[in-house]
């Protein structure tokens, strides 16, 4: 009996060892494979861009490259890279998330943001509202969102970059109102979050909650996601409302030094982020509803993007480090104002 047990145990052990060995050997890490870890609303953008870049790189260097793509909430993605997700390139929703990778895991230098033009943000976006066709709740600006009985869909600022832009845009609106100060902004944003029935973890999840599951009167989120939803799901169902003031969202990109040096993919990864600034890259960006940096491309797509008064996080909040510490850190303002079920 004992011998049987022993034999079975050894056999199982052998199976595990062989199994894991095969898997470890099977992982293909060729020099021409890079991984772009991105935030939620860029799925369609990078789908197109990755194919275009592969073509460009093949023509330029003769090397074939396949770009693997991962999309989820920006904070979650930063956490995964810190925990060892081998991203050659990170393209996240806001600078703080890449700062976190630099500070916590030391995978890239602290000055990463000065290495590429425009603070390493090849495209911008902003926060707008998406409402049902005909705007039945008459929502025109931020102050309509805090009215009792208005159900507002926004993702969770703890995990979603877009949600942090939402939060700051609302705060900036309250500050800029006549007589606005930190106390009145605190009160305004608290009332806003009282109207939020569910907090999804990523921007795309919140969009799905609103457009598919039909929950809520208004979705607050990325302009790109709103434009995409109107195009894909029908202008007869939804319409966009542009508030009087919003925030200039600057989603940055960076090469992850430690990863590309270990994999030997620095050249192709750097070309990948540089090509975003080229006219071809900017055109793909604008086609997918992100605001391009190049004036020529911006002019071509001018009719796509609404004119809206935009404030920046540096002007109003003194940069992302400060904004994160004040509003989104553990026990900070967001934790004080958001109490589910109240």
């Amino acid at each position: 009996m004992k011998a049987v047990l022993k034999l079975g145990f050894l056999a199982a052990l052998a199976v595990i060892t062989v199994g894991l060995g095969t898997l470890a050997g099977a992982r293909a890490a060729g020099p021409s494979t890079i991984l772009n870890v991105s935030f939620d609303p860029t799925r369609e953008l990078y789908n197109d861009y990755n194919a275009a870049f592969a073509k460009y790189w093949k023509a330029k260097s003769g090397q074939s490259v396949s770009v693997q793509q991962s999309n989820a909430g920006s904070g979650k993605q930063a956490r995964a890279v810190i925990d060892g997700l081998q991203a050659d390139v990170v393209t996240l929703a806001l600078a703080y998330d890449i700062d976190a990778i630099a500070k916590t895991a030391k995978l890239l230098p602290d000055n990463w943001q000065s290495r590429l033009p425009d603070n390493s943000t090849p495209y911008t976006s902003t926060i707008v509202f998406l409402v049902h066709k005909g705007n039945p709740k008459k929502i025109h600006d931020w102050n309509d969102l805090v009215k009792p009985g208005t159900s507002v869909i926004m993702p969770n600022p703890k995990t979603s970059g877009g949600a942090r832009w939402n939060f700051l845009a609302a705060w900036a609106y309250a500050l800029k109102r006549p007589g606005g100060n930190d106390a009145s902004a605190h009160d305004f944003v608290s009332r806003l979050y009282k109207n939020v029935p569910v907090l999804d973890s990523g921007a795309r999840g919140a969009t799905t909650t609103f457009v598919e599951r039909g929950i809520g009167d208004v979705l607050v989120g990325w302009e790109s996601d709103a434009l995409l939803a109107v195009r894909d799901l029908g202008p007869d169902k939804f319409q966009i409302v542009v508030p009087s003031i919003s925030i200039l969202a600057e989603p940055p990109v960076a090469v992850v030094d430690k990863v590309v040096d270990a994999k030997g993919t620095r050249a192709v990864a750097e070309a990948y982020v540089r090509y975003l600034y080229s006219p071809q890259g900017q055109d793909i960006i604008a086609r997918h509803f992100f605001r391009p940096r190049l004036p020529a491309v911006a002019k071509k797509y001018a009719s796509t993007f609404a004119n809206v008064k935009l404030v920046t996080v540096d002007q109003v909040f003194g940069g992302w480090q400060k904004a994160q510490a004040t509003f989104f850190a553990d026990g900070a303002v967001f934790d004080q104002i958001y109490q589910p079920g109240q």
Binding site: L23, A24, D83, G84
Partner: peptide, 27 residues
């Protein structure tokens, strides 16, 4: 256990063995 900030992660990743964010982790 196997993350870059974890118990065995730094050693494993330095030696080219990927457990999480790869197929072995899912298994």
């Amino acid at each position: 256990l196997f993350g870059l900030q974890g118990l065995f992660g730094p050693w494993l990743i330095a030696h080219g063995v990927r457990i999480i964010f790869a197929i072995p982790g899912i298994v």
